[in-house]
């Protein structure tokens, strides 16, 4: 069980923001951290890993105390048994795929451990390549395999699939599910892809401006987030002023374009290219499987 109760003042571009989260994650659980960028998701993940120090609070894993501001405990990251997958993968560029895994394995039967994970993640054929010669999806698999080499009880994923195309993303989601089923480790994943969260996570924490605003089963959360509304995510493709003093917003979601009219005031901070969620209260569909 991972327990954390942390507070930290963040200095975002929009000014100071207090990140304050208290939560328990049970063993084997797959939890997603969801929310707009700048909400503090990555910082929270980094505080659990010990890469960023909270201002105050506690972090513990089972009976082990990792961080306690009052007793001045701050266990070094390397002593916290966890795996971490970075958004930019953070593969060591001067080591081959196998080298990356063997480095993680340390001294004990490193090639055997590396072999096992290479097989499991379908990377055997790429073992002697350097990260620079791999596609994004392949690099992500290596990063995942490397994080699992030490068989951590806790796996932290920072937007692991955000940079991949849909096909690679779906494939890796499958793999993640498989690995989770196999190792039964606790997973905390930062993501803003609703579909991905619904597919992978058993529970979701929705953060906004440093605080958890919703928590629950993803399907319930996303379905209920606007009183039984239907939410689609997409990117603004056009903003057109209408004669009635409103703005017609075009949102591209997958292959569809949704048009929504908003008042000028509501639309004042909308820009072309921004990601938004469109919720429609007229519909009452409840399909969440993707």
């Amino acid at each position: 069980m991972i327990r954390f109760k942390v507070r930290k003042m963040l200095h975002a571009s929009s000014g100071p923001m207090l990140l304050s989260v208290e939560e328990e994650v049970s063993e084997g659980e797959f939890v997603a951290l969801y929310g707009p960028s700048g909400a503090g998701k990555t910082t929270l993940l980094r505080m659990i890993a010990g890469l960023t120090a909270p201002d105050e609070g506690t972090v513990s894993a089972g009976a082990e105390c990792w961080y306690d501001s009052r007793s001045r405990v701050n266990l070094a990251t390397r002593r916290r048994e966890l795996g971490f997958v970075f958004q930019d993968y953070a593969l060591f560029p001067h080591m081959t795929v196998r080298g990356n895994l063997e480095y993680a394995a340390g001294s004990r039967d490193r090639s055997a451990v590396a072999d096992e994970l290479l097989g499991m993640t379908d990377l055997r054929e790429l073992a002697d390549r350097f990260p620079g010669a791999l596609s994004g999806g392949q690099q992500q698999r290596v990063a995942l395999a490397r994080a699992l080499v030490r068989k951590p009880k806790l796996l932290l994923l920072d937007e692991p699939l955000s940079a991949l195309d849909r096909a690679a993303r779906v494939k890796l989601q499958d793999e993640l599910l498989e690995l989770h089923a196999r190792f039964r480790m606790t997973v905390i994943m930062v993501s803003h892809d609703v579909a991905e969260i619904c597919r992978l996570a058993g529970r979701v924490l929705s953060l906004e401006a440093g605080a958890v605003v919703h928590r629950g089963v993803p399907s319930d959360l996303f379905a209920a987030s606007s009183g039984g509304a239907f939410t689609i995510e997409g990117e603004i493709s056009a903003l057109v002023k209408t004669g009635a003093g409103g703005i017609l917003v075009s949102v591209v979601a997958g292959a569809n374009i949704v048009r929504v009219e908003v008042t000028e005031k509501e639309g004042s901070d909308l820009r072309v290219g921004k990601r938004v969620a469109v919720t429609s209260e007229l519909l009452n569909s409840r399909i969440v499987k993707l």
Binding site: R78, D88, A90, F92, A147, R150
Partner: peptide
């Protein structure tokens, strides 16, 4: 060197010295 490389090495249980020797200097 991207900060995440040294951080990744730490999450893999490596000391700063090991990270320096195996990750930073070769990079």
């Amino acid at each position: 060197i991207p900060a995440s490389l040294a951080e990744a090495s730490a999450t893999l249980g490596k000391s700063r010295f090991q990270t320096l020797l195996r990750v930073l200097l070769p990079g």
